[in-house]
Nucleic acid binder design. Structure first.
Length: 129
DNA sequence: ATTAGGG
DNA sequence: CCCTAAT
């Protein structure tokens, strides 16, 4: 579907998650001859951005705490099986950005448990800003 | 089929 | 988010 339509759905979805009932939302409608997508003969459009909610980050961190880093397939199954827009890779990418922004020692072996202290810091930093 | 990392 | 070499 058209990018702006997806964006609109995004906003509505977010408002619903925030408990709103009768909000009106809108997004700028691009001019009709707008160019988009890769070079050419490709049908797939880039997925619209979905900022992770605090709850999602918490779910991600808690699950990585339980399984260790690297088992994204399992993380998806355990904590994000109810949403189709969070792929195992998205979870991996999110974890990496969290590690970067919170300066958590990243060189951990696959499956190695993360110290609770570090996990807590991730949540704090992400919750505040 | 998944993961790790760069794009 | 996407692309893809490596596993």
């Amino acid at each position: 579907m058209k990018p702006h339509v997806a964006e609109l759905i995004d906003k509505i979805e977010k408002l619903c998650n925030e408990g709103h009932q009768t909000e009106s939302v809108s997004v700028p409608i691009p001019s009709t001859q707008e160019q988009e997508g890769p070079s050419s003969h490709t049908i797939a459009q880039r997925r619209t951005r979905r900022p992770f909610s605090v709850d999602e980050v918490e779910a991600l961190v808690r699950t990585v705490e339980l399984l260790g880093v690297g088992r994204w397939r399992e993380v998806k199954l355990r904590a994000f099986s109810n949403v189709d827009h969070r792929t195992p890779e998205d979870l991996k990418d999110k974890w990496n950005t969290l590690v970067h922004t919170t300066r958590i020692p990243p060189e951990r072996r696959r499956g190695e448990p993360i110290p609770q202290e570090l996990l807590d810091r991730v949540l704090i930093v992400h919750t505040l800003g």
